[in-house]
Design a protein around this nucleic acid. Structure first.
Lengths: 144, 144
DNA sequence: GTGTTTGCAAAGTGTTTGCAATTTA
DNA sequence: TAAATTGCAAACACTTTGCAAACAC
């Protein structure tokens, strides 16, 4: 008797484990969301993009649930929110320190290569505050 | 006969000239807006803040007009928009190159002192685009 | 079973727009 | 007086919330 290892369910187990590890209950919707986010390299996504990606895969998840869980994932450190454009929230699956190119023509975000940016003399923050994060965005427009 | 030079109207003439210089028609509302923005040092403001500042001075300007003219001023280079928070648009009267502290506790923005930040190795942008601007935001949270 | 999560639809927030009345040059 | 600007209210886009039904443990 041959035991069939199903590739798909193995992957779901991996995503499930990832969520449990972060104290997030692995529901059907969260696993679907995680599979969009955490498979196939880092991404910069909006809630709408995720809903339509899920819809294409016949995985129906409501927009409200996508929003709720993008924030839930952000809270536990699986995602990082990027403030490039106030018309729309972007989330980044790469939570390490890095900057972004923001292409104002296409609305697309790309990571700035690691070693490309260096900063020295980081200033001390005013008002007894702590530095939470340094955000660097290089805004791009069409070549003249 | 004594000619009275009114301090207030002299200042209005200065603001009027500033607007005309930029090809913007100096209406009552725009001069009021300019006097909030361009008197007494650089500022980081939201549309709502301006409306309430104007209201306190008994200078009534509608929210729609404030928005329209914040954008009009930005277009001619009198202001710069800052993307720190997608819940709200901030405008900066300092249009020179500089970074910002964004205090997530108070929602206040402060300039980063000129020489405090230095960047080297600015990367080349992808996709045949041109660098429009480099935005550096140091996000602050409460001290632990 | 109990507490959590979902999804709809409704509400909320900040911003923009259409258009008649007003103002500027 | 011709063209630009204002201000209201309605429209808008994105996001959050209230709550009953569904689900995870």
């Amino acid at each position: 008797m041959t035991i069939m290892y199903n590739k798909k369910s193995l992957e779901m187990d991996r995503l499930s484990a990832l969520l449990i590890e972060q104290g997030v209950r692995p529901t059907r919707q969260r696993i679907a969301l995680a599979s969009i986010l955490f498979e196939g390299g880092h991404k910069h996504v909006t809630a709408e993009q995720i809903v339509s990606a899920l819809r294409q895969r016949k995985d129906k998840v409501s927009l409200a649930t996508v929003y709720n869980n993008l924030h839930a994932f952000t809270k536990v450190g699986l995602l990082r929110e990027i403030a490039v454009d106030h018309t729309c929230s972007y989330f980044d699956t790469n939570t390490t320190i890095h900057g972004h190119f923001f292409d104002e023509v296409s609305g697309l975000i790309h990571d700035i290569p690691d070693q490309a940016l260096h900063m020295i003399n980081l200033p001390t923050p005013p008002g007894g505050r702590k530095i939470k994060r340094v955000d660097i965005t290089i805004r791009l427009c069409a070549e003249v």
